[in-house]
Amino acid sequence: MRSVRESPSHPDGIALGQELSLRVVLFHEAVASRLGLNATEHKLLSLIARDPGIGPSELVAHTGLSHPAITKVVNRLVDLGYTERRRDGSDRRRFTLYATPLRQQRMAGAFAPMAEAMEALVGGMDEAERRAVTRWVTGTIDILRRSTAALTETTDGPAPAPTPPAYGGAAEP
């Protein structure tokens, strides 16, 4: 497989997608680290900020994580001051989650340089280029959503671990 660097004028679509995926993951790992979080905590915080008033059960449904795992992450986000719990007015046993101003302040600081650079990149595109990029990104998001659902809806369980090669004998073909 060709590297993205080998032919910048005609990059391989798969290699380009893999590079984009890698860079997005590494960027979010760096943001999480800057906030004192791990990647899972960072993504759950993003879900809470995106959907104020979300409940723990909805986080379980969105992520596939267990209730105890969600509780552990939420407790940590509350302890760090990034999230607050509020009792549900109609059901006092239930609580909902909200991102705090501290979260917004820290995220703004972490994302500002990238947001400015992205604005400059998009600002340098004409309307046809913006439409093409929008079509590719929204198509990619849809493919990722469907692919994730297909992987999580199967009942096959995780793939088996690869069998280590046998040593001391003849090489296997």
Results as ranks from 00 to 15, higher is better:
Leu77Ser: 14
Glu116Arg: 03
Ala110Gly: 06
Pro113Gln: 14
Val60Arg: 01
Thr83Arg: 09
Thr83Trp: 08
Gly53Arg: 00
Ala110Arg: 04
Phe27Cys: 14
Gly53Ile: 03
Leu65Lys: 04
Leu22Phe: 12
Arg50Glu: 06
Leu65Ile: 02
Met107Ile: 10
Arg146Ile: 01
Gln104Met: 12
Pro101His: 07
Pro101Asp: 15
Ser147Gly: 05
Gly81Trp: 10
Asn38Ile: 03
Tyr82Thr: 09
Glu29His: 11
Phe95Glu: 03
Arg76Trp: 07
Ser21Asn: 11
Val24Met: 10
Asp126Lys: 06
Val133Lys: 13
Arg23Lys: 07
Ser46Lys: 01
Thr138Lys: 11
Glu29Asp: 10
Val74Phe: 01
Arg87Glu: 13
Glu41Lys: 05
Asp88Cys: 06
Ala32Ser: 12
Gln105Ile: 03
Gly89Phe: 14
Val133Trp: 12
Thr148Gln: 05
Arg135Phe: 02
Leu44Arg: 02
Lys72Gln: 14
Glu19Phe: 02
Arg23Asp: 07
His67Gln: 10
Met118Trp: 07
Arg94Gln: 03
Val31Tyr: 11
Ser33Pro: 02
Phe95Asp: 09
His62Tyr: 06
Leu20Asp: 04
Leu80Val: 10
Ser33Lys: 08
Pro52Asp: 09
Thr83Ser: 15
Asp126Phe: 02
Gly139Lys: 14
Thr138Met: 11
Asp91Trp: 07
Arg130Gly: 08
Glu29Met: 10
Gly36Leu: 05
Thr63Met: 02
His28Lys: 06
Lys43Glu: 05
Gln105Asp: 15
Ser57Gly: 13
Pro113Ile: 06
Leu20Pro: 01
Arg76Ser: 14
Ala115Lys: 05
His28Ser: 05
Arg106Cys: 05
Glu19Tyr: 01
Leu35Cys: 08
Glu29Gln: 12
Arg135Asp: 15
Val24Asn: 10
Arg85Leu: 10
Leu44Met: 08
Ala32Lys: 11
Glu119His: 05
Val24Ile: 07
Leu121Pro: 02
Ser21Leu: 10
Arg50Asn: 00
His62Gly: 03
Val122Cys: 03
Leu77Thr: 09
Val122Asp: 00
His62Glu: 08
Val25Glu: 13
Ala30Arg: 15
Pro56His: 03
Gly64Val: 07
Thr134Gln: 09
Ala108His: 12
Leu97Trp: 13
Tyr82Gln: 13
Asp88Gln: 11
Leu26Trp: 04
Lys43Val: 05
Arg146Val: 01
Ser66Tyr: 02
Ala39Arg: 04
Asn38Trp: 12
Leu47Asn: 04
Thr71Gly: 03
Tyr98His: 15
Ala49His: 00
Asn75Phe: 08
Met125Phe: 07
Ala150Ser: 08
Ala30Asn: 13
Ala132Ile: 01
Tyr82Asp: 14
Gly124His: 04
Val137Thr: 09
Met125Tyr: 00
Phe95Lys: 01
Arg86Ile: 01
Leu20Ile: 02
Leu151Val: 00
Arg34Trp: 05
Leu77Pro: 09
Pro101Ser: 13
Glu129Asn: 04
Gly139Met: 13
Leu121Arg: 04
Pro101Gly: 08
His42Ala: 06
Ala49Lys: 02
Gly123Lys: 07
Ser33Arg: 11
His42Lys: 05
Ile141Glu: 10
Leu77Ile: 07
Asp142Phe: 12
Val25Met: 10
Ala112Asn: 06
His67Val: 00
